[in-house]
């Protein structure tokens, strides 16, 4: 069962997954492109690290994009068929959803491995001065965890009914509207700020997206 579900999901998403894997492999290599190993004593380490950090901003974006695309391709065909086929299969509904989730997680491993391999190659190709180290495995691990959280979130939204999605969007939209009204009324009440803070500070769900996405650092 799981193998068949995995196969179908792979078939639906293979093209876009390939693109994501290529991007995931290339990103670490691009981030160290300015490093000149032959000019070891003279290049500006601070500038190099700043460049790597700038490229590092793309990792969480790529993780979220991979997660979103996989979640959409997971449920797309079922949505188009109004879930008739899935609901008529002889397994408990939650079991089916769980298998789909698991299949997506397996597919998510591909870009994670691509990031790891790209980081390993980039690290091996770069001679580092004393004091700097490469962190290919930590980078890949952070990428994997961020992709997992994003995938679970998008999966939950995609798996829900239109009513659920409407409720989620309604809550977010309501929050924004209320905040705007409070702003216009010149009050000092800030609803969105603390809410966003809770998302991005441990143990919030988006905390893994923050921090230093650095392949090379001290």
């Amino acid at each position: 069962m799981f193998r068949q579900l995995l196969y179908t999901q792979w078939k639906w998403s293979r093209l876009v997954l390939l693109i994501i894997c290529l991007a995931s492999f290339a990103l670490p290599l691009l981030s160290v492109q300015g490093v000149r190993p032959d000019d070891l004593g003279r290049f500006d380490i601070e500038q190099m690290l700043a460049g790597i950090q700038t490229w590092g901003l793309l990792y969480p974006i790529l993780a979220a994009a991979a997660a979103l695309i996989l979640a959409m391709t997971t449920w797309g065909p079922d949505h188009r068929g109004k879930h008739i086929y899935a609901l008529s299969l002889p397994i408990p509904r939650w079991h089916y959803a769980l298998l789909r989730f698991g299949a997506g997680c397996v597919l998510l491993a591909a870009p994670v491995v691509a990031v790891w391999l790209g980081a390993l190659v980039a690290s091996a190709a770069t001679r580092l001065p004393a004091g700097l180290e490469a962190y290919p495995t930590i980078l890949a691990m952070r990428f994997a965890l961020a992709a997992l959280v994003a995938y679970a979130a998008f999966f939950a939204i995609s798996a829900g009914t239109n009513r659920t999605a409407g409720i989620v969007l309604g809550v977010i939209g309501g929050l924004v509207v209320v905040q705007m009204i409070l702003l216009v009324a010149d009050t000092n009440i800030n609803l969105v700020g603390p809410f966003m803070l809770q998302l991005f500070v441990w143990p919030g769900p988006l905390e893994i997206f923050t921090g230093r996405w650095m392949l090379i650092d001290v």
């Binding site: 509904r93 939650w94 959803a97 769980l98 989730f101 798996a159 829900g160 659920t164």
Partner: peptide, 8 residues
Amino acid sequence: ALRSTRWR
């Protein structure tokens, strides 16, 4: 996701 009304 599993607790969605569709998949419960």
